[in-house]
Every structure is written in C-alpha cells, then in structure tokens.
C-alpha cells in the first residue's frame, strides 16, 4: 500500500515538473519559432541561444508587484487564476505517456491513473477550464476583461460540442473510453508502423479535433478572448505578477494537454518503432505544439461572427457526419 502511494506520488510529481518545464519551454519555442518565421532571431541574450529566457521570465514575473485594482470582486478575482490552472494540470492524470516500465525492480504503469472513462474525464477537465477565464473577466472592473470573458464562454460552449463529437468516431471503432486501451489498439507489429493509428481511420475526426482544440485553448487564429488589438489583453488585462503568470502557464498547459490527448487518441500515443516509447510520445507532442505555433504565425485572427458561423455551420455538421458515417461503417462492415 505504502509502496503504491509512494510510486504514484513520485509519478505525479514527475509529470507536474515535466509539464511545468514543458510550459516554460513552450513559450521559448513559440517565441523562437515565430521569430524565425518572421525573419527575426528571437530571444538570444539569456544563456546560449536564449535558452535561459523562460527562467529569466519566471524570475521577472515573480518579483513584479501584485496589483489588485480598485473595484474588483475580490474572492472571484483570487479564485480565477487557480480555477484556470488546476483543471489544466488535472488533464495529465489520465494521459498514458509511456508503456509500462520497470524502475529499480518495480513494475510501473506508464500512466498516473488508468480511468475507464478517461476520455470523458478529459472532456470534463477541458470544459471546467473555462471558468477561470469567465471569472477573471467577470471579477475585473474593466470592459475589456468582461468582453474577453463573454467571448470566451460563447466560444468554448460552441466548440466544445464539436470537440467532443470529433472523438466519438474513435470510441465507436475502439469500443472503449480508456485512453490506455485506445493507445494499445493503435499498436502495430508490421513495417507500416502507423497503419493502426486512428489518424488513418479517422482523418476527418483528426482534422476536427485539431481545429476544435485550437479554439478550446484560445489560440490563434481563434484567440478572440485575448485579442490584443481590440481587447488589450482580454480576460487577464487586470492581472499582474504571479496571478498573471498562472493564466499564462495554464494556457500553455492546456496546449500541451490537448496535444498529449490528441497524440494519444489519433497519433498512436507512445507507439512507434526503434525508439523508446516516451521518446516517441514527446516527439509527437512536440510536432503538435509546432503545428500550433506554425498556425499562429500563419493565419490572421478570425472575426467574431466568422468564428461562430464556422463553429456551428461547418464544424458541428461535419462532426455529426463523421460520427454517423463511422457508426454506419462499423454496423455494415465492422
């Protein structure tokens, strides 16, 4: 019993540390990649190639003055960053990051908790993440924050449906809600190592997942809740210091979260030849993140009504079509 608790705690701590480091270096990666895409150099002073930049940023943010503006709803204002941060971190509890491995003679499963409703759990956590943004917008005495909060709640409600439906195809084929099961279904012994990945069987589902995940995480080109050209900073306009950085970390943790879940669902998780599972997993997540940043550097922001139209009139019918098509396929040929 004690052994089990110790192993689990160690895994939790390791995953949290990995995710936080990942968040820090995702900011570095974003700045560097976007810089090169725009023919700039990006951060280059702190350490070799600017590699210590995230550390410098963290120190800077931690030492900033924590300003609470007049007229905020104090309790909600204090809760909001936490409500944004916690669900983002909780996603990683069910993501299988590696196959089971042995460590100093102990057999350790490569996932913190193999929930048999893992997919639902992920959906629940992503949908809870919206509260941080909404509450931040509500509690700040600022029009920009309120606008950002309203936009984000409307956006996330709209895209969450398509986000959930884009996964249903996999559930119909795989017949399981456990992420560990879904990964093991995608394993393949043949030379065509990606033949069983769900991206092959569910290409439309994958595209829908990709688009909806970007909208769910409020990333460009769907970053209307924090559109800096019209809303200053959106929901976090009135936040400073560590509270601001919690929103910032939460946003990147969400990005990594949907990237890991997308990897698990569509790209075969940790499956892959030659390299150890964890390396494959990191490579795939990295590709996901790169794609995100690439999109940000490529596309301009949508207008708000375009975003809503796109969500309800394009993505939602396509997601329904994908679900029905997959169901029909499984019934007729499966």
């Amino acid at each position: 019993m004690l052994e089990m608790i110790l192993i689990s705690s160690a895994k939790v701590i390791a995953v949290i540390l990995a995710v936080l480091t990942g968040c820090a270096y995702a900011t570095y990666m974003e700045r560097k990649v976007v810089a090169y895409m725009q023919h700039r150099i990006g951060p280059s002073y702190a350490g070799p190639y600017g590699l210590l930049q995230p550390l410098a940023d963290a120190v800077k943010l931690a030492f900033k003055e924590d300003i609470v503006p007049d007229g905020v709803e104090r309790i909600t204002y204090a809760i909001a960053p936490i409500a944004s941060f916690v669900p983002a971190m909780l996603i990683f509890a069910v993501v299988p990051f590696s196959s089971d491995f042995t460590f100093f003679g102990y057999d350790i499963p490569g996932v913190i908790s193999d929930l048999n409703i893992g997919v639902l759990y992920v959906l629940a956590m992503t949908s809870l993440g919206i509260y941080g943004i909404v509450l931040a917008g509500w509690s700040s005495p600022s029009k920009y924050s309120l606008m950002g909060g309203i936009r984000s709640s409307a956006q996330m409600i709209s895209y969450e449906i398509s986000y959930g439906l884009s996964i249903v195809g996999i559930l119909i084929i795989g017949n399981s809600l456990s992420l560990t099961d879904i990964v093991s279904q995608q394993a393949s012994e043949s030379w065509l190592f990606f033949g069983n990945w769900y991206i092959v069987k569910q290409p439309l589902g994958f595209l829908l997942y990709l688009v909806c995940a970007i909208a769910e995480t409020n990333r460009a080109p769907f970053d209307l809740p924090e559109a800096e050209s019209e809303l200053v900073g959106g929901y976090h306009t009135e936040y400073s210091s560590m509270r601001f950085s919690m929103f910032f970390i939460a946003e990147y943790a969400y990005m990594i979260g949907v990237a890991t879940v997308g990897t698990t669902l569509f790209l075969g998780g940790w499956n892959g030849p030659f390299l150890p599972p964890i390396v494959w997993f990191v490579i795939k997540v990295f590709m996901f993140m790169f794609f995100y940043i690439w999109l940000r550097a490529t596309f301009p922001r949508f207008r708000y009504d375009q975003l809503m139209q796109f969500g309800w009139k394009v993505l939602f019918p396509l997601a329904l079509l994908n679900t029905m098509g997959t169901a029909a396929w499984v019934v007729l040929f499966g």
Binding site: I117, L120, A124, Y131, I150, S153, I157, E160
Partner: peptide, 28 residues
C-alpha cells in the same frame, strides 16, 4: 455510477452553468 458522475461534470458544470454565467455576464 462513474458515467453519471462524469456526465454531471461535463454537462452541468461544464456546459449548462457556463451558459448561466454567460447570461449573467451578458446582462451584467
């Protein structure tokens, strides 16, 4: 009733109450 628990969070806490908050904020 794991499924019920998950649905309670996804549907009620995740969608319906967000809608409530949305309306409250819209009417300020």
């Amino acid at each position: 009733a794991i499924f019920m628990g998950a649905i309670l969070i996804v549907v009620y806490a995740g969608a319906i109450l967000v809608l409530f908050l949305f309306v409250i904020m819209l009417l300020n």
